[in-house]
Amino acid sequence: MSKTIKEQTLQQLGGSSSVLARQRREHAQIDRLMDQYRASGRRETRERILQEVVQLVFSHAFAEETVLWPTVRRAVPEGEQLTARVEGEHQQISDLVADVERLAPGDPDREEKVERAFALIRQDIRDEEDLLLPRLQDAMDTARLRRLGTAWETVRQTAPTHPHPVVPRRPPGNAILGVPLSLYDRTRDVLGPGGTAGGAWRKSVGLAGALVTAAAVCAVLRRLGRPRKEPRPKESPPARNGA
Rank of each mutant, 00 (worst) to 15 (best):
Q36E: 14
R38K: 13
S40W: 04
S40V: 01
S40A: 10
G41D: 06
G41L: 04
R43S: 13
E44N: 11
T45N: 05
R46D: 00
I49W: 07
I49R: 01
L50H: 07
L50D: 01
L50N: 03
E52A: 14
Q55K: 08
V57Q: 06
F58I: 04
F62V: 05
E64K: 02
E64Y: 02
E65P: 00
E65Q: 04
T66E: 02
T66P: 00
T66K: 00
V67F: 00
R73C: 07
R74N: 08
V76S: 05
V76T: 08
G79V: 12
E80M: 09
Q81H: 13
L82H: 06
T83K: 00
A84P: 04
A84E: 12
A84W: 05
A84Y: 02
R85L: 12
V86N: 01
E87V: 07
D95K: 14
D95N: 12
L96D: 12
L96W: 03
V97N: 04
A98V: 07
A98G: 05
D99V: 13
V100D: 06
E101K: 13
R102Y: 07
L103Q: 12
L103E: 08
P105F: 09
P105A: 06
D107C: 09
P108E: 08
E111G: 13
E111A: 14
E112Q: 15
K113S: 11
K113M: 14
K113Y: 03
V114S: 08
V114P: 11
E115I: 15
A117H: 12
A117D: 11
L120N: 05
Q123P: 08
Q123A: 15
D124W: 07
D124F: 09
D124R: 15
I125H: 07
R126E: 09
R126K: 11
D127H: 10
E129P: 11
L132Y: 01
P134H: 03
P134M: 05
L136V: 05
Q137C: 04
A139M: 09
A139T: 10
M140K: 06
D141K: 10
D141P: 13
T142R: 09
R144K: 11
L145D: 03
